[in-house]
Amino acid sequence: MNYILPILLATGLVIGGKSVYQYLTIGHSLLNLSSAVPWGLWVSVYTWLIGISAGSYFVVILGNATNNKQLKKITDIGLLLSLVTLPVGLLSILLDLGRIERFYELFLRTNPSSVMALMIFVYGVYFVVILITLLLNFMKKLSRTFSWITAIFALSVIVIESMLFALPPAKHWHTIIFPLHFLITSIISGVAFLLFLAGVISKDENSVNSLSKIAILLLVVIFVVEIIDGVSGGGFSQLKVMYLLIGNIAAILLFLIDAKQIRIVSGLLVGFSILATKYNSLVSAQLQQPFKGFEQSFIEPGLNFQYIPSTTEWLVVIFLVSLTITAFYVLYKILPVKGG
C-alpha cells in the first residue's frame, strides 16, 4: 500500500516527462491552441497552482495572525503546499511561452505597464516570503505582525495576478467581478487541499472541521459570484453549470455531512474542481468573437474559436501535478514538518 503513491507519481513523471520532452523538441504545433484561444490548459494550471499557493498561505498565516489553534496546527503543511505549488505554477507558464529560451528578457526588458512583467517580481518576492515564513515557523518565531503583513501580501498576489486578465479591454475578463472570482476560487483551492492534507497527514479532526466551515462559506460566496458573473454577460456554459452543480452545490452538501473521510475526499474534489472553473473562465472568455462573422472571415487551421486540449497538453499537466506532489512528498519527508 505504501508503494502505490510513489509508483503513481513515477508513472506520471515518466509519461508526462516524455511529453514535455516531445513538446520541447517539436514545439507548439503539438498543442491545440489557436490564435483565437491562445491561452489554454497550461495557463489555467498556472493560475490554479498559484492560487493554491497563495490561498493556502493566506489561510494558515491568517490562522497565525488571529491565533486560531486549529489553523495554527497545519501551518507547516500549508507553507509547504505554498512552497511547492508556486514554482510548478511558474513552470507551467514558462512551458507555455512561444520562445521559452527568451524568458530572461522578462528581467532585462521589463515593461512597467505590463502586469505580467510585474508579476515575475511579485512571485520572486512571494517565494522569498514563503521561505522566510517557513524558516520562522520552524524556529517558532512567527510573529502575529509578520503574519498579518504577509497575509495581506498573499492576497495581493492573487489580486494582481487577476489584473493580468481583467485590465485589458478585449475580453469578458474585463469586469469588476473577475478579480473577486479569481480571489475567492484561489482561496478555496488552498483551503480544499489544506483540508485534504490536514485529514491525511495530521489526521486532526478539529482542523478538518474548521477548514470545512471555511470551505462552505467560500463555496457559498463563489456560487453567488458565479451567478452574478453568468447573468452579467459571462453566460452559463455546460462546464460552468457542471461546476455549479458538482463542484459547488454537491460539495457544500458533502462538507455538511459530519464525517471526516467524506470531508477529506470533498476537499480533494473541490481542489481539482477549481481547476475546472479557472479553465472555464479563462477559455470561455476567449471564445467570444470580437466581431460578428469574425470566425468565418478567414477559415484556416489555427484560427477557429474552439479549444479542446491536446493529448500532449493533458500529459504535460499530469507531469506538472506529479511534480508538485513529488516535491511536496520529498520535502515533507526531509523537513521537520509537524503533524506527520
Partner: peptide
C-alpha cells in the same frame, strides 16, 4: 525580443 506569451493576442 518577443517571448511568445500571447498576452497581446488576448488584449487586442
Amino acid at each position: 525580443v518577443c517571448i511568445g506569451c500571447r498576452a497581446c493576442l488576448t488584449a487586442c
